[in-house]
């Protein structure tokens, strides 16, 4: 608050004394930090009031909602992408252990694990814009950016969103792939696989129905940590790719010490994480009777 006051003052003292006093009164800004915190949380819980962004001079809730939707969409799509690609490749990599394909995917997985997303983002943007001549910043082309929803706008979103999804997802994808491979390798050696084979099942059916089915369980619990990982990766990537998500907003809020905006964003990200963990726990219980019944 003090920094902000100093800022405002230095900008020409255009702040009316009354506004400041009203702010102080409303958020208890002259009181100790725990009372400020209590007032803020109480406001959120009772009235959905996330406070006021000092930087933008608008309520935080108003600023966030639009962007949070895109953030969430991006996180979910990233998760789906990572799962959809990691599982089949992980299965192939495990079933053909020590084949050329396995070595190649292992190598690539480690490269993508080690590569920071924003570097990948820069590289991909460069390649796409130079060689394919497409607009790569943001989630929309300029002509659709502020247009109302239509099929054209949706299609525009689809043509744009795959790039950030791929960029944010590759890290998680590589991690999931390694987990899937390791799990499946463990499961493939279990005696119940031999039992299933002795029944006369074909190899493909057997693979899907028994070891893969069981190897998926740890992957379900991975949702809990993939979601926050995707969100934090998204912050950096969306700054680089200038996406209309919460990432750039959070960065700016932190730089300008916009307390309520930054706090609310971090709070919402934390809530998302907890919800993600809860969902993964529920899914895991549905998928695995050992967890459900013991």
């Amino acid at each position: 608050m003090t920094t902000l006051m100093a800022d405002w003052a230095s900008q020409g003292g255009a702040v009316e004394q009354g506004t400041v006093a009203a702010l102080r009164e409303r958020y208890g800004l002259d009181q100790p930090i725990y009372i400020q915190y209590y007032k803020w949380i109480a406001g959120i819980v009772t009235a959905g009031d996330f406070g006021l962004s000092f930087e933008y001079g608008r309520p935080v809730a108003e600023l966030i909602w639009g962007r949070l939707g895109y953030s969430f969409l991006l996180a979910v799509l990233t998760l789906c992408f990572a799962w959809a690609v990691a599982i089949p490749i992980g299965i192939l990599s495990a079933v053909r252990q020590y084949s050329i394909g396995d070595y190649v995917t292992t190598f690539l997985a480690f490269v993508f694990l080690a590569l920071p997303n924003f570097v990948l983002a820069l590289a991909v943007m460069y390649v796409v814009s130079t060689y394919f001549g497409k607009s790569v910043g943001g989630l929309f082309s300029p002509e659709y950016a502020d247009a109302p929803w239509s099929f054209g706008r949706l299609w525009d979103l689809i043509t744009h969103i795959w790039l950030p999804v791929v960029v944010i997802g590759t890290g998680s994808l590589a991690a999931l792939l390694r987990i899937m491979r390791a799990n499946l390798l463990d499961e493939l050696r279990k005696p119940y696989v031999t039992t299933a084979r002795a029944k006369g099942l074909s190899e493909l059916k057997l693979l899907i129905r028994y070891p893969v089915r069981i190897a998926l369980n740890p992957l379900i619990s991975a949702i809990g940590w993939i979601l926050p990982a995707a969100v934090s990766a998204e912050i950096l990537v969306s700054v680089v790719m200038s996406l209309p998500t919460t990432g750039p907003l959070l960065l700016r809020a932190l730089l300008s010490q916009d307390m309520y905006l930054a706090g609310s964003l971090i709070l919402l990200v934390s809530v998302l994480t907890i919800i993600g963990t809860l969902i993964s726990d529920i899914l895991l219980a549905l998928a695995d009777p050992r967890i459900r019944l013991q």
Partner: peptide, 15 residues
């Protein structure tokens, strides 16, 4: 048909 030694691990735990 065949039966195996470990009745615990020779059957799938999730079916």
């Amino acid at each position: 048909a065949m039966i195996f030694q470990e009745p615990m691990s020779s059957l799938s735990p999730v079916h």
